[in-house]
Design a protein around this nucleic acid. Sequence first.
DNA 1: TATTGTTATACTCTATAACTATA
DNA 2: TATAGTTATAGAGTATAACAATA
Lengths: 156, 156
Amino acid sequence: MSKIIEDTARQVLETVPAVMRTIRAEFRSQRSRDLSVAQFRALAYIKNNDGASLSSLAAHIGLTLPSMSKLIDGLVGRGLVTRSSDREDRRKICLQLTDTGKNELEAAYDHTQAFLVDKISSLAKEDLDTVSRSMQILKSLFIADHSEKSTLKTKK
Amino acid sequence: MSKIIEDTARQVLETVPAVMRTIRAEFRSQRSRDLSVAQFRALAYIKNNDGASLSSLAAHIGLTLPSMSKLIDGLVGRGLVTRSSDREDRRKICLQLTDTGKNELEAAYDHTQAFLVDKISSLAKEDLDTVSRSMQILKSLFIADHSEKSTLKTKK
DNA sequence: TATTGTTATACTCTATAACTATA
DNA sequence: TATAGTTATAGAGTATAACAATA
């Protein structure tokens, strides 16, 4: 039993970085206006957490506050994100996607997904199911508190 | 059928980066002497391609020659790699791991694998099998000609 | 001339520290 | 005092350009 665990861990460690490299390379090859991976992730988070604060975004992406502030500077400057001040707590900022930001995010996502569709389209249905279920299992293990909605913050 | 493919692609796109982030974060947290991911990969490549040239290494890792030269500077300076001149073509250099380099590589790998073992140890055997098979499937798709795969050896 | 590698230089990304404004 | 965010500055990592040595 222990051996199965170790073997699986080794396989994850061998495979995930390789898949990630491919995704990253494909993503980079198509970004029209130099959207970095961190910026892409920021857009995705803001989309799912409309009105998010800079702190919650930084915590989720894993950047420091100053780094995130600068990153957001770039996104605001390019018209992909709006940065307004929070009405309830004026220290905070309220981040939202513009329509352009939504489109840019969707385009980047779609392109990369299309690339993956092409990659896996040769698989038999059985194998697709296996990969699909495996992704769900891994997601449950590796994506823990992703659902930090802006509505239920202020918990102190 | 097409929908299954698209859904699976989307799941891969959502899940793999999250798992990768976790692996990367864990890897970073334990590197004793600031071994970057690129350096780790370079060590792994040199281990599997003893006497490799700088060009072949750069091509494999995906760095330019000057960048790789600098990266190797660091590894040589820290005693993890030796850089001697190739006897048959004196323009080339001959890269090899020192014993320290081998140990450092092995330690970095083992630690990260141990972390993953801990992460997945709560899974039922069925789920472990699913993940394991899924990794094999993805590996066959995403690791085509990279000879880096034998890097991560089975042990214990 | 072409190839292998190094040096010089610059840019991007991210960090830490110090600061302002608000709570 | 504590928290949210910004500005200033520095370091790591990587790129391009120009160069030296060898083929």
